[in-house]
Design a protein around this nucleic acid. Structure first.
Lengths: 147, 147
DNA sequence: AATACTTGTAAAAAATAAAATTACATGATA
DNA sequence: TATCATGTAATTTTATTTTTTACAAGTATT
């Protein structure tokens, strides 16, 4: 499948770091878990770094969060990896000479923006902390917690 | 992949039919407005027909709605053309031997389903009638109204 | 200082989902 | 009957994402 999965992979990477802070956190190790290659992990980590979520130092595998995990939301990560790309797209390639086409797409865009806003409010309520908490609950393995 | 645009094109097609009920509504004519080809228009109309939104008879270009336009929502059309495909996808191709990967994706899926639900509630509030009403308002051309 | 790691990044290639196209069977209408 | 139309399956093309390759540059250990 080639659906966009940077969001899911970015959350995976962040969760991996949060769950295994003492482990080897090199892009190579994380890549094994995400089932991809180190360069792609580094690309996503670069997005997260650019968005001010992650700290990392070149040459040294020691990624850390810039803020507590309960302040890192799904929306933050979505914005970090997807930027302004919306969930639903209008068709910008309609016939420009058709009054119906031009205006309907413009009106649709307004509606999509409202839907996007609702989805983003929903994403804003989900934190990395919540997700990792649920992970620990369901695995019944609190031994690796470090907080 | 290309961005999915069946939803926007399906809404375009429905609006075109609603705005121009007396015009030629052949797939060829609609395709000119959508800037695509007749077969693709027919494919989308087949989805809408299958979903019980549109009536059409083979061999005769006379598409009609099965119900009033204020009972046709964006969600209805989304379901018609996208089926169960969600807006956000988990990564199903993670390393199955990694406890973190498997569980994080499972937990993410639950979160995505909540976001999907909110987005769908938002889509449910938008009707074809509203969109075409806005079209008529902004074009200041009510002369083609037939209701 | 040498080495063996690492990250950071760009660029190219491969994969794949969506749209576009084609082809033709079938139905409607004059 | 001729000429339209729709319905639909199969194939090709296109666009986006992921994957891969490559290498510059930083870090740590010996």
């Amino acid at each position: 499948m080639k659906y966009p999965m940077k969001l899911s992979n970015a959350m995976h990477i962040l969760a991996f770091i949060y769950i295994n802070p003492k482990n080897d956190l090199s892009s190579a190790t994380i890549a094994v878990s995400v089932h991809t290659n180190p360069a792609y992990v580094r690309q996503i980590m670069a997005d997260l770094k650019m968005a001010g979520i992650l700290n990392n130092t070149q040459g040294h595998a020691n990624p850390t969060f810039t803020r507590p995990a309960d302040k890192i939301t799904l929306l933050d990560v979505y914005r970090a990896v997807e930027g302004d790309k919306p969930l639903i797209h209008i068709d910008t390639n309609i016939n420009p000479d058709c009054n119906v086409g031009v205006n309907i797409q413009r009106i649709l865009q307004e509606k999509y923006q409202m839907i996007q806003k609702d989805a983003e409010e929903s994403m804003h309520k989900v934190t990395l902390e919540q997700i990792v908490d649920e992970f620990h609950k369901c695995t019944k393995d609190q031994s690796m917690r470090w907080d």
